[in-house]
Design a binder for these strands. Structure first.
Ligand SMILES: [Zn+2]
Ligand SMILES: [Zn+2]
Length: 732
DNA sequence: AGCACGCCGACT
DNA sequence: GTCGGCGTGCTC
């Protein structure tokens, strides 16, 4: 008997199946982790199938060394899922499998090679005789011990150098283990009586679950329409029919309150996977699922891989959230797509829910790919009163402060009434844009229609998608005004101005600076909630999460910042943000007021937010997407080239561009394909590495996948790194 | 010749 | 990703 094994090596030429012999008496199962001989060492591998025969010459086949766990990690469907992931996201098979695997499973077994210097003085003759070896020793005098792989990368050397130093006894190389750093009783709740719309949604989804068929739903429910109760009753139905359910929740809203709602209904049948778990704790939760101890998993992105044997339902709360996309690590997967695939493989039902669905999702719902369920009525929540203030008017009337007269007077009133205020300001971010203070005009790229980024160094306006450039203007092309310049405000400025105008107000600030420490985010919320401050100033983070009943005023200092992010989704982000921010005002019994300050009061995102009308926003935005062929009318792919020498990076980026062009030109089908760039990435330098990017736009996702394959297997100079993201949600 | 070092291909 | 083998080129 033979086992087909995927080995744990991240390289394109080992990304295939290797055949091993199963020794007599070894009780090997499909999906087990094993240790196998590979060249002259032992490495980890994953058994993806067991066969009677093999086409590979039997005399060359080695035996499996040993089984690593006493159970199978992946069932057949999970292996199928990994196969799909590696093809869909163009990653190695081993990476897909490791993404599905719980991190804690490896415990202390993983080893790394460590290099330690063994002499105090570097022999003089080495300097001339073997300069590279001298360099290594010189470096080790400053930093030793160090990981071998790190040393090789930093000094850009070959392993042969280490080998000869080791032979001479100047250094020692040894293996070391990687150490991992190392629910209470809640009163049970009863199902609530559903309102008509909720009842209808539950009945509809229930029908599909009973039929055991793969079905996809979009639950489009306004803020406060009781989506969670719908989830709870669907899960209840699912469990009753002997199946299990997964609920994906954005990290930020996985609060004690949220967890309590699930635990109070389903008790110890619920496992919670949040990002604060240590690898060991994660592994424990994973085991609970595997052993059938729980029926429900509530968790963040990677909870989509919860290894239920009989999955019936996946719910994705706040479906439009970008946290469902893993953008920092390979594979760059989106849990929404993975969930869809998993449901297909398991004949389960997928329910995606949002008050502000992503354009792609709503588009698919209009095309009938997702069945649309609506919750239009708010339960026990009144809609806040939303007002938009045109900041150009304020300037025209001589008000140069960052607060409009309206917002200023509302803040004053709120302070007198002892009611709380939230002032929202988008993070100034890594890029800045230019706008006309008189008419709101913002220079955009003629090719891509995204806002141009202002570069302070050379005073030029640059498009981060395609590299288009123009000189900074001194007059507005729309109205002729000379007041066209960089626009941006930081949270410090808002805090200072509040202190200046309202010296007695107690202010809390919540931004990247004040929330660096773990738990500080929660502490600020707790302090504010318990009334320790009158005004909370914050960025993105305050738009979701905790309910604060006493907040009756929300001020958006400058909606333009979000509106002009260099991203084709900036309008969508703005609408989502403003809707969420509006939901923060008046959640208690007191009615809320929202003031949105902007220079672009006629923008459809702003108008639709004012009337809290998603469909109105959607109808405008979808037109723009179609004209400029952005998703859902195409797929994007972002290729980032990084390295220490900017010139080199730029040249490689140009090569990558040419290669993409060659592939596109050779295509037989006449699909729409466009290659943009190369352009400097919005974040031009990270960790001393310069970054350039090439962006591709294609109607046919397979074209992008093919190019991703070629780009990733191409040879590059050492120190040049390539990162490919298909369907990116953030282009940085 | 003898060593240093970069490059290439194979690993079941 | 990691290893050994091999070719080149420099020094003794
Ligand atoms: Zn103007
Ligand atoms: Zn452009």
């Amino acid at each position: 008997m033979f086992a087909e094994v995927i080995v744990d090596i991240k390289s394109s030429n080992t990304d295939r199946v290797y055949t091993y012999k199963i020794p007599e008496g070894m009780k090997l199962e499909v999906g087990m982790r094993v240790s196998v001989p590979f060249k002259n060492r032992f490495i980890e591998g994953y058994v993806i199938s067991i066969t009677e025969q093999t086409s590979y010459p039997v005399d060359k086949i080695k035996d499996i060394h040993k089984i690593l766990d006493n159970y199978s990690v992946f069932d057949e469907k999970m292996i199928e899922l990994a196969k799909w992931m590696k093809d869909y996201y163009k990653c190695y098979f081993s990476e897909a499998l490791q993404t599905i695997m719980p991190v804690g499973i490896k415990r202390g077994e993983k080893k790394v090679k460590i290099v330690r210097i063994n002499i105090s003085e570097i022999p003089d003759e080495l300097c001339k005789r073997a300069p590279k070896q001298y360099e290594v020793l010189h470096y080790l005098q400053k930093r030793s011990p160090i990981r071998l792989s790190e040393l090789v990368k930093i000094l850009n050397i070959d392993y042969a150098i280490i080998k000869s130093l080791q032979k001479k006894g100047y250094i020692k190389v040894y293996e070391e283990e990687i150490h991992r750093y190392s629910v209470k009783d809640i009163e049970r709740s009863q199902p609530l009586v559903l309102k008509e719309e909720q009842e209808k949604a539950v009945t509809e989804v229930k029908k599909s679950m009973e039929k055991d068929v793969f079905e996809k739903y979009l639950l489009f429910g306004v803020t406060g329409s009781g989506k969670t109760e719908v989830y709870l009753q669907l899960i209840d139905e699912c469990i009753k029919s002997g199946k299990s359910a997964i609920v994906l929740v954005p990290e930020i809203s996985l609060t004690p309150q949220t967890i309590e709602r699930f635990v109070s209904r389903f008790g110890n049948k619920v496992a919670v996977i949040h990002s604060g778990l240590s690898p060991g704790e994660r592994f424990d939760e994973w085991r609970k699922v595997k052993n059938g101890v729980v029926d429900v998993v509530v968790g963040v992105r990677n909870a989509v891989f919860a290894p239920f044997k009989n999955l019936g339902l996946i719910i994705i709360d706040e479906e439009h959230e970008t946290t469902y996309k893993q953008s920092d690590m390979r594979p760059k997967y989106n849990a929404k797509e993975v969930a869809e695939k998993r449901c297909e493989l398991e004949n389960a039902v997928l329910v995606m829910a949002s008050a502000t669905p992503s354009l792609e999702t709503y588009y698919k719902a209009t095309k009938g790919e997702y069945k649309l369920l609506r919750l239009t009525k708010r339960i026990n929540v009144s809609m806040p009163h939303i007002e938009v203030v045109n900041m150009s008017d304020e300037l025209a009337r001589g008000n140069t402060s960052i607060f409009s007269r309206k917002l200023f007077s509302y803040i004053k009133e709120n302070l007198q009434k002892k009611e709380q205020t939230i002032l929202f300001l988008n993070r100034r971010g890594y890029s800045s844009f230019v706008s006309c203070r008189d008419c709101g005009y913002v220079p955009k790229c003629p090719n891509c229609d995204i806002s141009l980024t202002y570069h302070f160094e050379d005073k030029r306006l640059v498009c981060h998608y395609c590299g288009y450039q123009e000189a900074m203007r001194d007059t507005c092309p729309k109205c002729g005004s000379k007041r066209i310049r960089y626009l941006g405000i930081g949270t410090e400025r808002v805090e200072n101005d509040i202190k200046k105008f309202f010296p007695k107000a107690r202010v809390l600030r919540m931004d990247v600076d004040t929330t660096k420490k773990k738990g500080s985010h929660e502490k600020i919320f707790y302090d504010f909630r318990s009334g320790k401050a009158d005004i909370l100033i914050g960025t993105q983070m305050i738009s979701k999460g905790f309910d604060i009943p006493n907040v009756t005023l929300v001020g958006v200092i400058l909606a333009d910042i979000t509106l002009n992010l260099p991203d084709f989704r900036s309008s969508e982000r703005t609408f989502q943000l403003l809707t969420q921010v509006a939901g923060r005002a008046g959640r208690g019994e007191k009615p809320g007021r929202v003031v949105i300050q902007t220079y672009e009061e006629d923008h459809y995102s702003i108008i639709a937010s004012k009337y809290q009308n998603y469909v109105r926003f959607y109808n405008e935005e979808i037109k723009y997407r179609e004209i400029f062929r952005y998703p859902p009318f195409s797929h994007l792919m972002n290729i980032v080239i990084s390295g220490e020498e900017e010139e080199e990076v730029k040249n490689i980026a140009a090569n990558v561009y040419l290669m993409c062009q060659k592939i596109v030109n050779k295509l037989q089908n006449k699909s729409y394909n466009k290659i943009l760039g190369p352009a400097p990435a919005p974040i031009r330098k990270i960790n001393n590495r310069y970054r350039w990017q090439v962006i591709l736009k294609s109607e046919d996702r397979n074209v992008l996948v093919d190019i991703a394959e070629k780009v990733q297997t191409m040879k590059y100079p050492k120190n040049i790194r390539i990162s490919v993201d298909i369907d990116p949600l953030n282009i940085m």
